[in-house]
Design a protein around this nucleic acid. Structure first.
Lengths: 228, 228
DNA sequence: CAACAAATTTCGGTATACCAAATTTGAACG
DNA sequence: CGTTCAAATTTGGTATACCGAAATTTGTTG
């Protein structure tokens, strides 16, 4: 837990807080306050905030406090559009390039998911889900592609999470993942395209629904202030 | 030229130096030296280096001097693969979403290119070329997509430049661009796909050739040191 | 009581000081 | 002459000091 740089660790901490909703969209992230709270100086915290900015999780405003991004519906829709394209591309490349070991690892994730099916809570289940998609991106053997995939994944993490826990269709997810793994094993590009399509096509409208709701709620609750 | 933040300006300066080859791949970017040279302190320079790191132009090594990235053939090939996918996706979306004004702007760029044909130097011609592709990405009306497009464009800028000046086929470039604009006007997705395909398909092998050559040269010339 | 203006506080941006790790240098020894 | 180890220096990482611009508060006035 300590081989990462300090700014990266701070970014991890802040990212968790944002994705879990502890730092809510629109909240300001004051450098001094948060630095004190985490027991570090402003310099590494500042750098951590920049990291999160490149991920789109916070928004930098010149000469003003950075705020937790409050993505518009349009922005989320755009991000989803890109993420879908990246995942489709990754899957097709993985179909040609994934090693058997990588496919085994993905299959193992599906097994874990099927096992823990109704014992595990939403957050953990969702993290397993995301690890499957990250693994699929990595199996394309293109680090640049995997990079931007993880960027958009984290950018949409919270929306996707809110969407996922809403409709608890775990068995369908496991089923889809199994089909994807099967297509990988068969090296069948067409099959993986349809399997992933079935898995992801509902994603866009679902996520956009969730975000629309959240924005409506947010406009009801007015301005917020950073706690202690 | 002053509405940008200071780190962004510094990053611009360093980026130019890298892309123009003044800062050669493998050179170390020492914080104190470059800060002094540019008349700023380490803090904003440091931040500028981080910006370039996210663009892939410099490589950060924990507790060591950052160096100008010396991309491997594999990395360049991966980047090209991603860039091609992004440009194809952008073009198809632009076909459906570009406004007439945006298409006009692209057409104007093609005209400028045709005009300056044999009066302008390689660098300027290339910058016009790149502005066309950036404009095409923007016409897709998806800022997230345009963002990563510009990232990969700058990451490959130098390779693409070296490749472009090598084979001076300006008329073919103008011709291709014209076809792309025509396809946009006709809102013909298939046509734009083939036009862009013709334009870009030669890109991958060309760039990879150039990089392979440069790496061979670099291994001949041994280690380098930062000047003054 | 409302509204505007001035003073004060807050906060991000930049510069600088300090520290620890890493590199380099050079001297001593084989 | 080469190798090795330690002292000195270089360098990135972090903390802090300082500054100017925002934002907030307060006091005054209509």
């Amino acid at each position: 837990m300590a081989d990462q740089t300090l700014p990266a660790q701070i970014a991890d901490q802040l990212r968790r807080d944002i994705l879990r909703g502890i730092l809510r969209p629109g909240m300001s992230i004051k450098e001094r306050d948060n630095a004190d709270k985490l027991g570090v100086s402003r310099t590494p915290l500042r750098e951590a905030v920049r990291i999160l900015a490149t991920e789109g999780l916070v928004e930098l405003r010149p000469a003003r406090s950075p705020i937790v991004s409050i993505p518009s519906v349009k922005q989320v829709a755009d991000d989803v559009e890109v993420l879908l394209a990246i995942e489709k591309m990754s899957a097709e490349l993985a179909c040609a390039r994934a090693t058997e070991a990588e496919i085994d690892a993905l299959a193992a994730i599906v097994d874990v998911m099927a096992d823990k099916f109704d014992t595990v809570d939403a957050v953990e289940m969702f993290e397993i889900d995301m690890s499957f998609h990250a693994g699929l991106a990595r199996a394309a053997h293109n680090p640049s592609l995997a990079d931007i995939h993880s960027t958009f994944l984290s950018r949409l993490w919270r929306s996707r999470f809110l969407s996922a826990i809403q409709r608890r269709n775990r068995e369908r997810v496991v089923d889809h993942h199994s089909q994807i793994v099967a297509a990988l094993r068969a090296r069948d590009t067409d099959a993986i395209r349809t399997a992933l399509g079935a898995h992801l096509d509902r994603l866009a409208p679902d996520i956009i629904n969730v975000i629309t709701q959240e924005i409506e709620q947010a406009s009801a609750t007015a301005d917020r202030k950073d706690d202690l």
